[in-house]
């Protein structure tokens, strides 16, 4: 953990790389409400980074800052060693930052396959004209993307619902399709906003396995928000703990678990 430039090795022996994204002194205010107060942390290549904290701690706001849905009032986001200028969400997505939503945002009228295909829009090159005219590379390109998407479908074990309109799926499967769509973008950073919220035990275990497998197989850097402490401790390499918009802990799960501030926040000790 000492060497912040070279990366570190996890207890289970995975090699974590250098800093991919750095959040510097992020503050986010809505009118008089301070959602995030002067928070800094980094995200390293290949790691699973969790953000935890009680309800209303500002976790989702933090994720929205990273994905460009919110513009921080103060502070800077550094990506690939460069300061990221103010960007719209779709521009951030084009940088290779894919996300899922707490309340699921899928295209209900489209099939599972089409939903996942939209994830690859940022990677498609054919211009408007050749697409419209079905010229040259457009058809070949479509097939190529289709193959990649089929791999993800196999990986997440959703082959049997490929053609089903997403609106008809149960909640747990929708969450999985949303993950598939984010993965289809071959993201440099994958942001998961409460991927296990509202799931039963079995679905949670599945989702845990998928997140670990994705990280293992593709080396995807993952940032996730989660309520369930047990899940977080199992999954993540490093944890940021937030409470009332402030950062109260940052480190490997074991270290964070024994942090007095964190214990207080979770057990509800009164703030003075």
């Amino acid at each position: 953990m000492k060497d912040m430039v070279e990366g570190y090795t996890t207890p289970d022996g995975r090699q974590i790389g250098g800093v991919l994204m750095e959040l510097k002194n992020i503050t986010l205010r809505f009118g008089g409400v301070v959602a995030i107060k002067d928070i800094s942390f980094d995200i390293r290549e290949g790691e699973i980074r969790a953000i935890i904290g009680p309800n209303g701690a500002g976790k989702s706001s933090m994720l929205n800052v990273i994905s460009g849905f919110y513009v921080p009032t103060e502070g800077e986001v550094w990506f690939h060693g460069q300061k990221r200028p103010a960007m719209r969400p779709y521009q951030v997505a084009r940088l290779g930052i894919a996300r899922t939503f707490q309340n699921i945002a899928l295209f209900d009228g489209m099939s599972v396959l089409d939903n996942i295909m939209t994830g690859r829009l940022t990677l498609m090159k054919s211009g408007l004209l050749s697409q419209a005219m079905w010229w040259g590379s457009a058809a070949a390109e479509e097939n190529e993307h289709r193959e990649k998407v089929e791999k993800i479908i196999d990986f997440l074990e959703i082959q049997n619902i490929r053609k089903t309109p997403v609106g008809r799926l149960p909640y747990g499967l929708k969450k999985r399709v949303e993950l598939a769509r984010a993965l289809a973008a071959e993201p440099k950073i994958l942001l998961l906003d409460e991927p296990m919220a509202g799931m039963n035990v079995e679905e949670k275990e599945d989702m845990c396995r998928f997140i670990l497998d994705v990280n293992d197989e593709f080396g995807t850097t993952t940032v996730l928000i989660e309520h369930d402490m047990g899940v977080v401790m199992d999954l993540s390499d490093r944890v940021v703990v937030m409470d009332y918009g402030r950062k109260i802990g940052d480190g490997p799960p074991d270290e964070v678990r024994n942090n007095q501030d964190v214990i207080d926040a979770y057990l509800g000790v009164a703030h003075d």
Binding site: L106, F107, T118, A185
Partner: peptide
């Protein structure tokens, strides 16, 4: 053909369905 089989056609249907999700996959509304 355009709306069913092209990149922009798919983006178009995506925007119709959900603005937020469309933004998150890199579509400029």
């Amino acid at each position: 053909i355009f709306s069913q089989y092209s990149k922009q056609g798919r983006a178009l249907r995506a925007v119709a369905d959900d603005h937020q999700a469309a933004l998150s996959v890199g579509i400029s509304l």
